[in-house]
Design a protein around this nucleic acid. Sequence first.
DNA 1: CGCTAATTTGACCTGGATCAACTACGGTGG
DNA 2: CCACCGTAGTTGATCCAGGTCAAATTAGCG
Lengths: 247, 247
Amino acid sequence: MASTPTHALSPLLRKLESIATLTDEERHAVESLPVKTRMLAPRQDIVRDGDHTSQCCLILDGWACRYKLTGKGQRQIFSFHIGGDIPDLQSLLIPVMDHSLATLTSTTVALIPHADMRELTLRFPNIAAALWRDTLVDGAIFRAWIMCMGQRSAFDHIAHLFCELYLKQEAVGLASEHRCPLPFTQLDLADATGLSNVHVNRVLQEMRRNGLITLRSQTLVVEAWERLVQTSEFDAAYLHLQKRAAP
Amino acid sequence: MASTPTHALSPLLRKLESIATLTDEERHAVESLPVKTRMLAPRQDIVRDGDHTSQCCLILDGWACRYKLTGKGQRQIFSFHIGGDIPDLQSLLIPVMDHSLATLTSTTVALIPHADMRELTLRFPNIAAALWRDTLVDGAIFRAWIMCMGQRSAFDHIAHLFCELYLKQEAVGLASEHRCPLPFTQLDLADATGLSNVHVNRVLQEMRRNGLITLRSQTLVVEAWERLVQTSEFDAAYLHLQKRAAP
DNA sequence: CGCTAATTTGACCTGGATCAACTACGGTGG
DNA sequence: CCACCGTAGTTGATCCAGGTCAAATTAGCG
């Protein structure tokens, strides 16, 4: 960490380079973004519904989620985020938040002032396009969630979510061999799927009984990937993960 | 239509100008986009799940929706679209479709080649930013739908949708006085909300009984706007409608 | 080792689904 | 102008996925 060439912003670079091929100048410009790094405790709000923001938040390490509360305090989680994600990139163009962003685990984030981000996108349309594309994938994931909520059973919905979360991590090298971290509670899963925690628990038990998954000590092991994919009609196309262009 | 100053692309201009202030040059560049205008019958696919596209589709008049089918043929509708919307703008940066786009009514559309669109966004970062912002609002609407599907009753969900559809139309001058066109069937509403058509029917009857709405001959009249807003906890903030900058 | 948060279990309930008629209505052709 | 037909809307009966409530039982963790 001391003299290695790794850089605080390398998760962002990796993500951008998985979308577009960057020139040296562009790569250097990203690395030169003036960021403040922060370490945050689990289950802390980073930005709140209604806030006016002047910076955005790049996740470097750990997990975060976007969510919103109803009048009666019920929480709906909209998305889960890992290193390389900028969950509140939206605030760059729409500075008033219509939902909240919070950590799930201990998390390291980099705060990037909107002004610098805006300058970067104006100087480098290529980077702007990559970020825009990223918000489009974000939308595609929302549609997949809507599909699950509207048309699938609780079992298939959770199976679909597991496929998504595994692949999302695999794509950035945080998972392999159908095994990945899943460091949040059944209540978090319930709030993400719109189910009750009790029912999530029962579905998980059924998945274990069927030999589909193992889930303990914050680790998900998909024992039967194909069956998980089939039952939930999971089609990874919507994640639009594509191999990085050859260097 | 003959010698008036109105232009086929004026719905797009109006939308862009509701987001950003355009220079004369920018306005002229938009108007100079080479478009093919098409009139489409109701309930026709415009683009299909899996298609590779090289143009995007601007709605000029009429209604369209984005949707996707499950393996068993159940349809989930993701969004409704009216004049000025570019529902498949996503294809500009992600050319392979992960869902379908179809008309609901007789619809006039303008097809814009990706190449021209791309050139426009490269020449005018201001326009690119406006379009990007539009895709972010698109995402915000998806989140509102997820919130409704996960946390609200069928009644409140439909009420929320009615508020959204009314305001969306009001914002572009297609509705006023809490009265707007709603030219689609109860089955469409069911597929958008993830409910059965039977239950949608029962909820609508209850809304009528409560004096909340009138809905007949494709027209929605909200008889009690405040109550509709309150029961569904509708907060228009997520639509990010803002007054056009003064000329 | 004790405390708290997380998971699990059981009993019971309900919102909304499903299935199957039946009715109303906007065309369309005679 | 009317008979016909297909689509959309309505109704009733029954069922079930998943919710709710409350009480254990773990699992972490300081």
